[in-house]
């Protein structure tokens, strides 16, 4: 089966006045049609930058590598080609629903806009479809709500509006960048449930970006863990959670609270390295409990789904 989204060797570089910065390096992954992929990492790990650059939403970034969506190439595509794809075949929802809706537009018009642009619907037809969409994302009295402005709505309602707008043209792939981070915990669960349900119903590909390993693992079949601009480990969610092979992933799991757990949570000592500085070896070496002198000598490549010279075997996990 050919992949819905195929990304190989994606590198995103920014030229700043104080020198270049590689925000994401050699990122490769694929999402099958109807598949779910979670991209996990701390802020600054390059997870958002990677997907934003695919859609051409990072002005000023130098993007290299290859990427294709349903066989159409993304990197190197013209602005017009990308504009045609965005909102139609691939849609995106963002972290902060409070700021992601245009405050001067009625909610219904914002949901209707992709329909008018990509489907050529007239105002009345687009509005009717928008109202139906608002209902399908679980918003009460959608006809009334369509005439409201964003500031009339709560955060959870606004994120539902964003989802409705993203799904308007029934995209083959939905990218959700920290869709629940800015929401209350109870609303978070509702929005995640909604996303999972819509993904199943529409058999749509989903890329879910989050810093929350627990959240992502509930929805996604595959995981990709990023650290300091690189993919450190990827694989099926079950395997990755039960037997992580990269020490960073093991550390992340150890620092996640569980219901049964007692006592102090383990933390990963140290901080993320400065990406402006030259980093010759493994970027996690400085914080890694298993680091050996070889680790900092030369770049480590992603081998067998893990970027580590001395990956953990399941039996050694207890020592981390």
């Amino acid at each position: 089966m050919s992949a819905l989204l195929e990304v190989t060797g994606l590198t995103v570089r920014f030229e700043t006045k104080r020198g270049g910065l590689t925000a994401a390096e050699d990122v490769s992954f694929s999402v099958p049609a109807g598949g779910t992929l979670g991209i996990v990492g701390e802020s600054g790990s390059g997870k958002s930058v990677s997907v934003l650059s695919l859609l051409g939403l990072l002005p000023g970034a130098k993007v290299t590598g290859t990427a294709s969506l349903e066989g159409k190439k993304l990197i190197g595509a013209s602005e017009a080609e990308l504009t045609k794809l965005r909102g139609d075949r691939v849609a995106m929802i963002f972290q902060d629903p409070m700021t992601s809706l245009d405050p001067s537009w009625r909610v219904g018009d914002q949901v209707a806009e992709p329909l008018r642009l990509h489907r050529g619907l007239d105002a009345a037809a687009a509005r009717a479809k928008a109202t139906a969409l608002l209902e399908s994302v679980g918003l009460p009295s959608p006809a009334e709500l369509a005439r409201a402005y964003p500031h009339h709505l709560s955060g959870g309602q606004r994120q539902r509006v964003m989802i409705a707008a993203a799904l308007a043209c029934e995209p083959a792939l939905l990218i959700a960048d920290e869709p629940t981070t800015a929401l209350d915990v109870t609303v978070q669960a509702q929005v995640m449930e909604l996303l999972a349900r819509l993904q199943r119903e529409r058999k749509m590909g989903l890329v879910l970006i989050s810093h929350d390993l627990g959240l992502v693992s509930e929805v996604c079949e595959e995981l990709l863990v990023m650290y300091a601009g690189q993919v450190v480990e990827r694989g099926p969610t079950k395997r990755l959670l039960s037997a992580p092979r990269h020490p960073y992933v093991a550390g992340l799991l150890a620092s996640t609270p569980t219901l049964e757990g007692t006592g102090r949570l383990k933390e990963i000592p140290g901080t993320v390295p400065d990406l402006r500085l030259p980093l010759p070896g493994c970027r996690f070496a400085e914080r890694c409990p298993q680091a050996r002198p070889e680790c900092t000598k030369s770049p480590v490549s992603l081998l067998d789904e893990v970027r580590c010279l001395f990956p953990l075997s399941p039996s050694r996990l207890s020592h981390v």
């Binding site: 965005r86 909102g87 963002f94 902060d96 992601s100 806009e113 642009l117 993203a166």
Partner: peptide, 15 residues
Amino acid sequence: RLDFITAAHAIGVPR
């Protein structure tokens, strides 16, 4: 640079 402008680009609104 506002979020909703990026969001508008993301649903395919021409520049």
